[in-house]
């Protein structure tokens, strides 16, 4: 790693101020950023750790019935504390990485990084979650903008993520066993006004909505409703773990499994 300073603010205001410095970067749980620093793929001058900011941690419902999760909340805490209100989201969190990784990695860090194979982007997009920063609230539909690219601006911190709770939901992840990321992951969420289907791990553009499946499932919420659909291989990731055709095939398989499991 190149040398840098670490700051550990205890309030959001202090963190925002520290991040306005030249060369400053936010540090969530570090489970992606620290390996990246070790490879010298990033060279911040100052890391601003968000792990000591208690106002950015925790899971609670708001007055509109949404589940609000602080940006610095760990995957382990989401798995535990969201289980009653949003079991599909808690189940997703409980399968990220491994137990020690889940004790450090955070929802805000995952969404800010927007790895094309991360799990949380699928949940956020399928739930049309609201990504809240110190400056504004961003709909998930506007937030994800491609590989490792989001609507976040320089110095902007995810303080909170708000999820509308669906009538039924499920996440199915086809595990890439070495990395424990998703080879393909599909989050299906059924709301009163329609079904949303978000796919991670598959596309070269990162997480995306499978709109044909959403239309089919909105009129008939059953795995059979997807029988006539297929996903084009064009634009899918091809690597040593799977071809674009394989990933395209998996998208449909995992969507059907998610619908069947959601009931």
């Amino acid at each position: 790693m190149y040398a840098f300073e670490i700051e550990r603010p205890s309030t959001l205001a202090e963190a925002v101020s520290a991040l306005s410095a030249e060369g400053a970067q936010a540090l969530g749980g570090g489970q992606t950023l620290i390996p990246t620093l070790k490879q010298r793929l990033a060279a911040p001058e100052v890391l601003v750790s968000l792990s000591g900011i208690s106002e950015m941690k925790g899971v609670c419902p708001d007055d509109d019935g949404r589940l609000c999760i602080g940006g610095a909340t760990t995957h382990a805490a989401v798995a535990r504390d969201a289980a009653a209100a949003y079991p599909a989201l808690a189940a997703l969190a409980s399968h990220i990485g491994d137990p020690a990784v889940r004790n450090r990695g955070t929802i805000g860090g995952s969404l800010a990084n927007n790895d094309p194979a991360a799990c949380y982007p699928a949940a956020a997009l399928a739930s049309n979650a609201t990504i809240v920063t110190q400056n504004r609230a961003i709909d998930a539909d506007d937030y994800f903008q491609g590989l490792f690219t989001t609507a976040l601006e320089e110095g902007e911190i995810i303080t909170e993520v708000k999820f509308a709770i669906p009538e039924a939901a499920n996440y199915q992840k086809f595990l890439q066993p070495a990395s424990r990321f998703a080879l393909v992951g599909v989050f299906v969420a059924k709301y009163a006004d329609g079904v949303r289907v978000a796919v991670t791990g598959a596309s070269e553009d990162g997480v995306f909505r499978w709109s044909e499946a959403e239309a089919a499932l909105s009129s008939d919420f059953s795995a059979g409703a997807l029988d006539g659909l297929s996903v084009p291989a064009e634009g899918m990731i091809g690597d040593l773990h799977g071809t674009p055709e394989y990933r395209a095939h998996l998208v449909k398989v995992m969507t059907k499994r998610a619908v069947a499991a959601a009931g």
Binding site: R8, G30, S49, S51
Partner: peptide, 13 residues
């Protein structure tokens, strides 16, 4: 009280 990977956490944290 929580298990963490000490190679992926800074001492300052």
């Amino acid at each position: 009280g929580e298990a963490v990977k000490a190679c992926t956490m800074f001492a300052a944290e």
